[in-house]
Amino acid sequence: MNVEVVHNILHKHQNAQDGLISILEDIQSQFGYLPAEALKIVAGESGKALVDIYGVATFYKSFSLKPRGKHLISVCLGTACHVRNAPVIGQEFERQLGVKAGETTEDWEFTLERVNCLGACALGPIVVVDGHYFSKVNTAKVKQIIDRARRGLDKVEVKTDNRVFPIGVRCPRCNHSLMDSKHLIDGLPSIRVTASYDRMHGRLSLSSLYGSYNVSTEYVVPDNAIVNLFCPHCHAMFSGSSDCTICEAPLIPMIVDGGGMLQVCSRNGCKNHMLDLSGINI
């Protein structure tokens, strides 16, 4: 466990004076579970008693004190799902993954758990994998769900998702197009900028699909690092006036072809972005 990560989370929450649950949620999203060491750090920093924090962590079912796998599969066994054969679906997951509910597979890929209602009874039986809801599941779909989870559900399916559309952008300083037709991402010309991090300069290509987070870089940038981005034509540094609402890193502005501004977060791994179309007559 990385102690510094916990301290960063606590710092973000006004030195642990914020609500305990949101702190624990952040820790869990970082590590996948609540490590005992992290809870002790939270207790020490916030001045709350460890028993109280432990009480909250054990009270809520969404918190886990045991390490969990990369993917979390929750099978709903609420009343509405139960009468639509959810127990059999649960058993099918158990059989295919080779674990019982509440356990994690040996390769640390999947954790299977039962939940008692997800509040979407009309869509039942419901299975939630990594925050993605699968509705009206039957035993035949179980294998498909596991396969998709293994491939990664957070990858945007460009072809089928109509929330994703391509945009072209320009440098806000020199108004030169940043589109790079030699380097394709998601089958479309990418947005090419120069990225600098820790004295390394290199090409950074972003997908031009709004909603796709695929990037390719010349150098490996560590997760959570903030990068400076430059225009490859006028070499001006992109700098905006606003900060990311999620991680407080600077937001980087670019002009969208046809009007409007696109702002992307400069922190590697943060997916915050904004498309500002105010003041445009469509």
């Binding site: 008693a49 460890l50 028993v51 109280d52 432990y54 009480g55 054990t58 009270f59």
Partner: peptide, 14 residues
């Protein structure tokens, strides 16, 4: 908690 000022034990789970 109140008399011994310790907070060593508490409720767990639900």
């Amino acid at each position: 908690e109140e008399q011994m000022m310790a907070k060593a034990i508490g409720f767990r789970g639900r």
